[in-house]
Simulated scan of single mutants.
Amino acid sequence: MRVLLMAATMAASGGAMAGSCAWPDWESFKHTTMSDDGRVIDNSSPQQITVSEGQSYALFFALVANDRATFDRVLNWTQNNLAQGDLTTHLPAWIWGRLEAKAGAGGNQDKTAAPAWGVIDANAASDADLWIAYALLEAGRLWHERSYTALGTVLARNILAKETAVLPSLGRTLLPGPVGFHPQEDVWRLNPSYVPLQVVRHMATALPDQAEWKAVFDSSVKLVTETAPHGFSPDWVLYRRDQGFLPDEASKAEGAYNAIRVYLWAGMLAPDAPSRAAALGAFHPLADFVVAHGFPPERVDTRTGTAGSNAGNEGFSAAVAPYLAALGRNDLAEAQVQRARSHQAPLGYYSQVLSLFGLGYLDGLYRFDAAGSVTPAWTTTCPAAH
């Protein structure tokens, strides 16, 4: 545990990386949650679904692990199955899995037929698309592979064209997807967890469309920091012309399984990142809750700041630990790391990815710089692992 605490301190201060690049959690994730051909599987679903978010995270983790073989398998599966074989022209569908059997001529399902698999919903999810583009751009830089850079650049351009809009008084803003998030002429539905500020910042510094991505970054900072009046981020929020951000009544303005990532992204910002102070300062009540209860809440009514009775699971603890460390509360961060490691049963897909992000960061396996570039430990202190 001392190693974790030291890593947390170094990560929060922008210091040296941990000396070892072994990542047992990543190897476990590949063994339990990924197919041999590069599909991340949510085993909790009867349809054995794969979401584009999971594919995007797997690309990032493979880059952090210097695991290019897995990176290529994940990329190929994503392109072939979610993007109709071409990520340059198609944003990836957000969900894929076992399809419901079709009824036969008599109206009955053929239970003897082999299950069919494919896209369940062809709409895209912009957070996944953003992480895929980011992983490709950074893989191109770190592995000196121009094809990754080219593909990431084209995907980022398609995100701008299909998944952003210019909102009045807010500017160009990332929408959660191409379809379904502009319910009224003067209303948009947004998601603060979809805009990790270091990732958006990198787009604004590394791509030719810098001015447009800078506008997306500026609106993203507002989306993250101005939608938590009681210090807890909502899963979803509305933006209305002439009124600004408003609670999303459809989701009861709840902060839960989406919002937990907002604290995670904030905690991993570089010490000199331009948005770090605002992002950290927005969520002090979350830290106060952890002090009082020993765990993050599973659900919060962000209209009042009132938490539900259930504790967030071990993945939630892994997600808030970097935020607590960034505040200088290494005692709280270490306690959440211990809680994250205390699980008996295997973690599900989502808890696993939260743990890979949070614990991998605190173990010093990667950090972000002020421009949003990632520095994996293998680039500074470790030999190539694969």
Rank of each mutant, 00 (worst) to 15 (best):
residue 8 A to K: 02
residue 10 M to Q: 09
residue 10 M to T: 09
residue 18 A to D: 03
residue 18 A to C: 07
residue 19 G to V: 07
residue 24 P to K: 08
residue 26 W to E: 05
residue 39 R to M: 14
residue 41 I to E: 07
residue 44 S to A: 14
residue 44 S to M: 14
residue 45 S to I: 14
residue 46 P to M: 12
residue 47 Q to R: 14
residue 54 G to W: 00
residue 55 Q to I: 05
residue 57 Y to R: 06
residue 57 Y to P: 04
residue 58 A to Y: 00
residue 61 F to P: 00
residue 67 D to I: 00
residue 67 D to Q: 01
residue 70 T to V: 07
residue 71 F to K: 03
residue 77 W to S: 08
residue 81 N to C: 09
residue 82 L to N: 07
residue 86 D to G: 15
residue 99 L to T: 09
residue 99 L to K: 12
residue 103 A to L: 05
residue 111 K to I: 06
residue 114 A to W: 00
residue 120 I to P: 03
residue 122 A to L: 07
residue 128 A to W: 02
residue 138 E to H: 14
residue 140 G to F: 10
residue 146 R to Q: 08
residue 148 Y to L: 03
residue 163 E to Q: 14
residue 170 L to I: 13
residue 170 L to F: 12
residue 179 V to I: 09
residue 179 V to S: 08
residue 185 E to C: 07
residue 186 D to E: 14
residue 189 R to K: 14
residue 199 V to N: 02
residue 200 V to K: 01
residue 201 R to K: 11
residue 204 A to D: 00
residue 205 T to G: 01
residue 207 L to E: 01
residue 214 K to W: 13
residue 217 F to Q: 09
residue 221 V to C: 06
residue 228 A to K: 00
residue 235 D to N: 11
residue 238 L to H: 10
residue 251 S to H: 07
residue 251 S to Y: 06
residue 258 N to R: 08
residue 259 A to N: 12
residue 263 Y to T: 09
residue 271 P to K: 12
residue 274 P to W: 06
residue 278 A to C: 04
residue 280 L to E: 00
residue 285 P to S: 06
residue 285 P to R: 04
residue 287 A to P: 15
residue 304 T to S: 10
residue 304 T to R: 06
residue 306 T to W: 04
residue 309 S to F: 03
residue 309 S to M: 02
residue 315 G to T: 06
residue 315 G to F: 07
residue 316 F to L: 05
residue 319 A to S: 12
residue 320 V to M: 11
residue 321 A to I: 09
residue 336 Q to F: 01
residue 338 Q to I: 04
residue 338 Q to R: 06
residue 341 R to H: 02
residue 342 S to H: 03
residue 352 Q to L: 05
residue 355 S to Y: 05
residue 356 L to V: 05
residue 358 G to Q: 05
residue 362 L to F: 06
residue 363 D to I: 06
residue 369 D to V: 15
residue 382 C to N: 09
residue 386 H to F: 13
